[in-house]
Structures are given as structure tokens and as C-alpha cells.
């Protein structure tokens, strides 16, 4: 295994880490308006309060690692998706501000406005991630220098929009699972219990439709299974994880349900990586223009140095991420320092 492959896997892990972790707090945002009273809305925000910021760092580190390991792909993706990424930045900043400032003033108008902001920005960010994934799956037009030559409208194809909706449903489901775990027992938690079912059902429908659409429309996505038949195990794991969600909810094991939705997301990220492999950006017009893990990579020396940096840093990152989650374990309570 060479370093290029190693970095492809590492980026996959960072992306999976991001999707699983920020997925539930984006999901909590998508479900935010279900809570009607101020207390319930504060409970929602405080359930993700101490950790959403750290979760977002996975995205930033993913971006930085992509820049360092595959600068050609970083440049193409970020400049090609200019408008969607600006919208994403708008959503991420607006969301941070909504969470941070909502409860600083007592006015109902102030709080209502930030509640809408939190909901809207979480929804928009999740949708845009899905659109980006969808476009990566179908490929985008690139010129011989590897620069994007398409249009904004071209990025909003039916497949990309469908991927956007699927990610929204997936994060909403994951968020519902998380809230079910973290909210104090009572009315609100019961209602979220119902939403676990709604969001799971919606995700299931979109997941099945999306899988069929992919099989029909993107033959390249499944080509890698012929070379790597063992990957079918991940598909089976994925299906089992999806099926285990209602089972664990029914048996009143919310933590197991949350882990299952996390595994579902990780399996999907894996399948996404496998569908792309060995491309990072697939050129829809001419396969020769595609950016692969070899022609888009940094020099072997940089890949090696970056590998040492990641190998030194990530154990620390994981250990204090766990320490922070451990500190804030248990069901959420409203305290004087809460949002």
C-alpha cells in the first residue's frame, strides 16, 4: 500500500468522523422547530452545546488534509463549487452565531429569529453536503488543467438534489437518535421518540430510491465491486445497521440505535469512497481529465511528512475528544452556563 492510498483512507476517516459527529448536531438543528417551548428549544441546543464546535473541526481538518495531500483536487473542488461553498460558509457561520447568541437576550423575537436561523442553516448545510456528494458521484466537467468548466445549474441535477435530500433525512434521523438519548425523560423526549420513526422511514425511502438511481445511472459506481468483492460485506453491514435502528428503538435501547445510525453513515461514506476510487474528482466529459489519488497528489515527501504529523496528532485528538464527550455525558440539564 502506498502513501497515496493511505491518504485516501485517512481522508475517508476524517470525512466519516465528520459525518457521524457533525451529522447528529446538524440533525438536531433540522429538528429544532419541533420543540415548541423555549425550555425545549434550549434543551435541543444544549444537547449539542459543548460539542458541536469540536465536531465541525473534523470538516476543517478534512479540508486542510485535502489541501496538503491532494492540492489539485482541493483547488478544483473548492473553486468549482464556488457558489454552493459560499452558501455553505454562510450556513455554517450563521448557524454558529444562532447557537451562540440565541439565549443571550430574553426577547421572544430575538430568540424566535435565531431559532429559525439555527433550523434553516442546519438544513441548508446538510443539503449542500449531499449535493456535493451527489456531484462527486456523477462527476463534473473538467478541462485539461483539471479546472471545473460547468455551470451552477449543471450542479443541481436531479441526482445531486436527491443526494441532498437523502443527507438531510439521514442527518435528521441521526439527530433524532441523539436527542432521544440526551433529552431528559418527559414529553419532549416522547415526541422525539416518534420523530425517530418518521425520520427513519423518510431516510429508508430515500436510501432505497437513491441506491436504485445510482445502480441505474452511474455504472462506474459499482464497477469497483467486481475488483473488490469483499466490499459487499460493507453493503450487508449497511443494510443490517439500517434494520437494527427500529429494532433497538423498539427494544428501548437508544444508545444501540444511535450507534446503528452512526454505522449506517460510516458505511455510506465507505461506499462513496469505493465508488470514487481511484478518483478524487471524476471528469464527466473525459475520463483522462479526472483527478486521481496519483495525479492530484503532493510529492511523496510531503505525503510522508503529513503522515507523520497525522500519526502524531490524531491519538491526542481522539483522546481529548473522548475526554470532552465523557465530561458532558448523561442527559442534558439547563444550568447557568447553558445556551
Amino acid at each position: 500500500m502506498d502513501l497515496n492510498v493511505g491518504w485516501f483512507i485517512l481522508l475517508g476517516l476524517l470525512l466519516a468522523g465528520y459525518a457521524v459527529l457533525d451529522g447528529f448536531d446538524l440533525g438536531a438543528g433540522i429538528l429544532h422547530l419541533i420543540a415548541r417551548t423555549d425550555r425545549d428549544r434550549r434543551l435541543f441546543m444544549n444537547a449539542i452545546g459543548p460539542i458541536w464546535d469540536g465536531n465541525e473541526v473534523w470538516l476543517i481538518t478534512f479540508g486542510g488534509a485535502l489541501f496538503a495531500a491532494f492540492p489539485m483536487a482541493y483547488a478544483t473542488i473548492f473553486s468549482g463549487f464556488y457558489v454552493p461553498f459560499m452558501a455553505l460558509l454562510f450556513a455554517l457561520i450563521f448557524r454558529a452565531v444562532s447557537i451562540e447568541f440565541r439565549s443571550k437576550m430574553a426577547s421572544a423575537f430575538w430568540r424566535g429569529a435565531w431559532d429559525m436561523g439555527f433550523f434553516g442553516s442546519s438544513l441548508l448545510a446538510s443539503f449542500l453536503f449531499g449535493v456535493a456528494v451527489g456531484n462527486s458521484m456523477i462527476g463534473i466537467p473538467l478541462n485539461e488543467r483539471g479546472a471545473f468548466t460547468g455551470t451552477l445549474v449543471g450542479l443541481l441535477s436531479p441526482y445531486a438534489l436527491m443526494a441532498g435530500l437523502t443527507v438531510v433525512a439521514m442527518f435528521a434521523m441521526h439527530g433524532a437518535m441523539y436527542l432521544f438519548l440526551k433529552l431528559p425523560k418527559g414529553d419532549m423526549q416522547d415526541r422525539i421518540g416518534n420523530w425517530v420513526w418518521h425520520t427513519w422511514g423518510l431516510f429508508l425511502v430515500l436510501y432505497v430510491l437513491g441506491s436504485m438511481y445510482t445502480l441505474v445511472a452511474i455504472p462506474r459506481a459499482t464497477a469497483n465491486f467486481e475488483r473488490h468483492p469483499w466490499a459487499a460485506a460493507i453493503v450487508i453491514l449497511n443494510v443490517l445497521a439500517v434494520a437494527n435502528i427500529p429494532r433497538s428503538v423498539f427494544r428501548n435501547k437508544p444508545f444501540q440505535a444511535f450507534v446503528s445510525s452512526g454505522v449506517t453513515i460510516m458505511a455510506l461514506v465507505f461506499l462513496f469512497g469505493l465508488a470514487l476510487w481511484p478518483n478524487l474528482v471524476t471528469a464527466s466529459n473525459d475520463p483522462a481529465h479526472s483527478l486521481t489519488i496519483y495525479n492530484a497528489a503532493s510529492s511523496p515527501k510531503t505525503l510522508w511528512i503529513m503522515f507523520i504529523i497525522a500519526a502524531t496528532g490524531m491519538p491526542f485528538v481522539l483522546s481529548y475528544t473522548i475526554a470532552v464527550y465523557w465530561t458532558f455525558r448523561g442527559r442534558v440539564e439547563l444550568r447557568e452556563h447553558s445556551y
Partner: peptide, 9 residues
């Protein structure tokens, strides 16, 4: 890019 990634990690 390496310096930036190191900053993230």
C-alpha cells in the same frame, strides 16, 4: 497545505 493541515490537527 501541510502547515494548514498541521494547524487543524
Amino acid at each position: 497545505g501541510s502547515a494548514l493541515a498541521a494547524e487543524g490537527i
